[in-house]
């Protein structure tokens, strides 16, 4: 199990060091504090909106999840007006053509 194998299945997991218990981001095989081994667990899908914009008709954003983990992805608004700090949910994630993809929805 690792980040990519889980992402391929649509699961968003975060790595924690088995030695010092730190959360490691971006995903890596070793802890960036003590070089300990990593164990993976499913992350909370709830986060907050850090920033957003739009390209053509596609809204996109930077969002923050537990332990300060930040990712960029599509933002689904469903007619709601985005506000910095608003709650968002990671609705979908995966890998397409070797590229990570994340879809967040404003709650």
């Amino acid at each position: 199990m690792n980040f990519e194998s889980e992402l391929k299945k649509g699961n968003f997991v975060i790595g924690t060091c088995t030695d010092c218990d730190r959360v490691v981001w971006p995903p890596s095989n070793l802890c960036n504090s003590c070089f300990g081994k990593i164990t993976w667990k499913k992350a909370s899908l709830m986060g907050k909106l850090i920033e957003y914009s739009k390209k053509n008709d596609m809204d996109f954003c930077l969002a923050e999840f537990e332990n300060g983990i930040r990712i960029m992805g599509d933002l689904i608004l469903k007619s709601k007006k985005p506000k910095i700090g608003a709650q968002i949910k990671l609705e979908k994630c995966g890998i397409s053509d070797g590229c990570y993809s994340f879809v967040m929805e404003l709650k």
């Binding site: 981001w25 996109f60 930040r70 990712i71 960029m72 992805g73 590229c99 990570y100 993809s101």
Partner: peptide, 9 residues
């Protein structure tokens, strides 16, 4: 390498 940008590289 910066995969945290998703498709917004």
């Amino acid at each position: 390498w910066d995969k945290s940008r998703g498709e917004y590289k």
